[in-house]
Write a protein that binds this DNA or RNA. Structure first.
Lengths: 353, 353
DNA sequence: TTGTACGCGTTATCAT
DNA sequence: ATGATAACGCGTACAA
């Protein structure tokens, strides 16, 4: 590899001058600057950022610790992260924890177990050590779904952004939580159902102890209240986020003496199960019953009928996460303002409502 | 950050001894080794790999230049890359080219244009410069679908692996192409259809000038020949990989005087279009006609009927790509053996056949 | 068995 | 305006 010395020799100047040209710090005469630039081009010189980082103690590397890149949300978030980092001239160092290969990551309960499992803790520490050995100047912890991940990370003295999850007790004094707005998204869904003319609207939630279920349930209630619609306790069910669970609960729901005319299902996977179950019972969607999902999986637009759903601001979460962690890394001071940033969801109207 | 000097002082030894303990090179007495390890633990010391790389001229960083992380295959391949790199103690540096935001990346023709477009070339060079500035010791170029990407990368003196694409004229003397086996996968699909009892089997291909279309067409022919089945020219159609194109071609196919009883569709997206078109015509799948896809999208198992398809060895491609590039980086010599590695696909039988 | 000194490719300080 | 040189954190001869 050609070094700054090669360039200096080729241009007939000192390495200091070359450095000054590269970082256009000091005053270099236009002539020599041009000569140096020519030499850089001739020799195809690319500065070694490791050496630069060693000297300046600033690496401009952002570490991304992701629980599972195979989760449907991860690629879009990483896309946002990469874009923002490229804009700001930062490198991205990734590490994948492969949660999927450890447990069924659609089930909330396993998270609690995971977090406690020594095995998982060990690989988090291991991955973190790898990242830290590169002297990353900021960390993004990317979850597989919103929940409290406090305690997973050891205390850190670099800024940390929790993306698509959150930490009540963050690992760093400079920390931020960035996710989407469950409450707003659920309202969006239910209000859309109401505007389509429904008044008997059931809800099928995810695991009862999950943050998302809780927040989306609030959104459901708020929307009903806003339109002065009654809340029927028998219309409120909880599954476990799986296709099968949606299938099963739909059976229960539509054997009620007074069944609903619409269902807000808290994720698309369960909604698929609901619709298939309805089809099995000879109930047509949306002619007889409307079904609304949440997540906007790629599959949802090809489902029959195409599923009305809520699309998550994944790219924006990534952009914002990277932007924030970079800002915190550059301003030495603590992060100010709201520690919990929720980006609004968008509504995706399709044929199922 | 604590340095090797801090550890040395804390343990009452010299930095050389600390270094020797870390890399367990030279003989260090058991006692001092233990003291040093204790100190490392006490101070939470993590070696600075930038400094190490500067000294040894080996960074153990693999660069991944991906055309689009949002492509359905990318996350699984990256998962494989991360896993292999973690196993071998390598860091992963990523850069995303965001092809998706430049053109409709499902359409083959745009690739030719992209490659020629100065804009794309510029961002490839830019991204590469970023990666090279970290002195990566190997590069993985991850495409969005198999095609020849020769000429996209400038000449490089580090090993390069093309994953999920290939280069007839690679950028480095140490290069390898790793993808899945279109020919074998297509045979798998068609043989499965034949074994289900069909003899009138149509095929809907992707763009006629694409490598994948060509190879899969060969697989189709081979399978028919092996079972001594005739090949009807009117059963051979080509689309452009899109849902709409599948929908349209199914209309043509089943208005034939003597329509087929099964269709091998070259990707799942077109297969969705085919099935929906069939439904529209009152033709039942699989009762009247069988449909077989290729790709195994997440959506395919939730489609109705669930789609029989071919699953791609994505994780394996990633593992193999990382393993190969690391091997080439470590053995100074040229890569030997086959430059084109094709990993077999698996068959995923579901209800549509 | 352990310690000293130098160099890796930069930036930054100080002369010139 | 430009150049010489000392760090940065680490590995490694070579010396002790």
């Amino acid at each position: 590899m050609t070094t700054i010395h090669d360039v200096a020799k080729h241009a007939g100047v000192s390495i200091a001058t070359v450095s000054n040209v590269i970082n256009n710090n000091a005053k270099v005469s236009a002539g020599t600057a041009e000569r140096v630039r020519q030499a850089i081009n001739d020799l195809n010189y690319i500065p070694n950022i490791a050496a630069k980082g060693l000297k300046t103690n600033v690496t401009r590397i952002i570490g991304v610790l992701m629980e599972d890149i195979r989760n449907f949300a991860s690629p879009y978030i990483i896309d946002g992260i990469c874009q923002q980092c490229e804009n700001d001239g930062y490198h991205v160092n990734v590490d994948n924890l492969q949660v999927n290969r450890r447990a069924d990551y659609n089930v909330d309960d396993t998270y609690g177990q995971l977090a406690k499992s020594g095995d998982f803790q060990t690989s988090v520490r291991e991955a973190l050590k790898t990242l830290l050995s590169a002297r990353i100047c900021g960390l993004i912890y990317l979850g597989t779904h919103p929940r409290d991940v406090s305690g997973l990370l050891p205390p850190l003295n670099i800024p940390v952004v929790y993306a698509y999850c959150y930490a009540e007790k963050p690992a760093s004094s400079k920390a931020l939580n960035i996710s989407y707005d469950d409450y707003q998204g659920a309202q969006l869904a239910v209000k859309n159902i109401i505007r389509a003319g429904h008044t008997k609207i059931a809800i099928i939630g995810g695991l009862i102890n999950s943050y998302a279920t809780h927040r989306r349930m609030m959104g459901y209630q708020t929307a009903l209240m806003e339109y002065a619609l009654p809340l029927y306790p028998e219309y409120i069910l909880s599954g476990n986020w799986s296709y099968e669970s949606g299938h099963e609960l739909a059976g229960k729901l539509f054997n009620l003496p007074n069944p609903p005319t619409a269902v807000f299902v808290m994720n698309d996977l369960m909604a698929f199960g609901v619709i298939d179950s309805l089809k099995g019972m000879g109930i047509r969607v949306p002619d007889d019953v409307s079904v609304h999902g949440f997540d906007d999986l790629l599959a949802s637009r090809y489902f029959s009928p195409p599923l009305s759903t809520i699309s998550l601001p994944l790219h924006e979460i990534g952009e914002k996460a990277a932007g924030s962690v970079i800002k915190m890394a550059e301003n030495g001071n603590e992060a100010s303002g709201d520690k919990f940033i929720l980006i609004p969801c968008r509504h995706v109207p399709r044929a199922s409502v």
